[in-house]
Amino acid sequence: MPDTRLRSIEMSCPPDDVDTVHDILQSVWDDHAEVSLRDRISFETALIELTSNVMRHADAGAGVLCRLDLTVSADSLEATLTDSGQPGDVRLGAAELPDELAESGRGLPLINALVDVVEYGRGDDHNRWYIARKLAR
């Protein structure tokens, strides 16, 4: 099992977008074949949902700057996403799935379902999101 590894990227959105996150995750999976497909898909979906939410809601018109820190350890996958956007309108605990024909509103429920830890905080005019998924052993 490789040692704990940290990978970081700074994004300016636009032009960076969620495809930038897909690309960095692909490089992470390439280096960590030991992470199961189920863990990869679950964590990638949660992180893309989170990043989409930040890019969609934190941008007041001037774009948003984000920093993504990814940590892969023997026990978990972790991501910290910091952004310069508007304060998040966060209702993590109450996020429930919308009507089945709704075209939006599934992002936060999906995140909650796919990772074990979801935290949000705000300080120094930045939003800070943290998600973690325990790995199957």
Partner: peptide, 16 residues
């Protein structure tokens, strides 16, 4: 290879 809630929303919009 990947579909998220934004993609699902687009499919549901198309369905309607």
């Amino acid at each position: 290879p990947f579909l998220d809630s934004s993609g699902l929303g687009a499919l549901i919009g198309g369905l309607k």
